[in-house]
């Protein structure tokens, strides 16, 4: 039974041109397409809508405090009269900026660290012990200490979370690289007289990049969650700049009188993280070598 399905899976692979096969696999994976599409939609909405609509998320207005959702304020207003819809979008922009920056920085550093840690076992041993040390701290604790010493700003949040997430990426890349190091094709390259640069960056990288992309999407989602938690306890993105975390913090005293202040940022946060994880799961299927081979 399993063999029969494997055969039908392999058939299109025979005619498929190699360079397009990843792209085709993405197109044929619903969770990647839906997750990626929704993520793009959320990102565009958060960036473009406040800009195009010239919306103001900062000016307080005491005559419009705690208004329930209406045509003028689709998500109501908060305790100082700011439009919740605008602030949800601006908060999303801040969260996604933090998420993407953290994913990019920790992704690149983690990739290089993981690759060389696997290739040079002695350096790798040292690097991995440092990573173990970093992982021993809960992400949020490390970030709070970091912000305590370097000041509260979006940049500090991004830097702190990048440091926290480097070990996660590095471990995944290291183990994927080590698996590849045992393959004979690396021995063949050594035997042909290839240097480490070619082996790592022109051969092993091709086989590691899939696992790396998947891990980076999960870091992206995690970073958004940790940033929200930090903002919630007042150690994240500084007020009055909107973030989903600090909006939830503001709403906690009004949770019974103004549910919209809690629900909309909360739903936005949950939805975004869900969509990113869906995208990551889809990518994992796409890059799964067992499916493609």
């Amino acid at each position: 039974m399993t063999e029969a399905t494997a055969v039908t899976h392999n058939k299109p692979a025979k005619t498929r041109r190699g360079s397009n096969s990843w792209w085709n696999a993405v197109l044929s994976s619903p969770s990647t397409m839906i997750g990626g599409g929704l993520l793009l939609l959320i990102a565009l909405a958060c960036v473009l809508v406040p800009w195009l609509g010239n919306m103001d998320g900062y000016t307080t207005n005491t005559s419009a405090m705690l208004l329930s959702p209406s045509a003028g304020h689709p998500m109501g207003t908060d305790n100082v009269g700011r439009d919740t819809f605008t602030r949800v979008l601006l908060g999303g922009k801040a969260s996604l900026t933090v998420g993407i920056s953290v994913a990019a920085i920790s992704g690149v550093i983690g990739f290089v660290v993981g690759l060389y840690a696997a290739y040079y076992p002695k350096i790798g041993y040292l690097l991995m012990r440092i990573c173990d040390g970093l992982m021993a701290f809960p992400a949020i604790l490390f970030a709070i200490v970091f912000i305590g010493s370097f000041g509260q700003s979006t940049r500090s949040v991004v830097l702190a979370l990048s440091i926290v997430f480097v070990p996660m990426v590095a471990r995944v890349v290291r183990s994927a690289t080590m698996t590849n190091m045992n393959e004979n094709y690396v021995q063949v390259l050594v035997n042909l007289g290839s240097g480490s640069f070619r082996i790592l960056w022109k051969n092993i990288v091709l086989n590691v990049i899939g696992a790396w992309i998947v891990e980076v999407t999960f870091v992206f989602a995690d970073a958004i969650l940790v940033e929200a938690a930090m903002s919630f306890i007042g150690a994240g993105i500084p007020q009055p700049q909107a973030s989903w975390g600090n909006m939830l913090y503001d709403s906690r005293t009004y949770i019974y009188s103004a549910w919209w202040m809690t629900v909309f940022p909360g739903v936005a946060l949950a939805l975004t993280v869900f969509v990113i994880n869906m995208f990551g799961d889809g990518l994992r299927e796409v890059f799964d070598p067992k499916r493609r081979r």
């Binding site: 393959e183 094709y185 021995q187 063949v188 091709l206 086989n207």
Partner: peptide, 10 residues
């Protein structure tokens, strides 16, 4: 093993 001796992505 002829499979393992070639880079699967190349």
């Amino acid at each position: 093993d002829p499979f393992s001796a070639l880079n699967p992505r190349k």
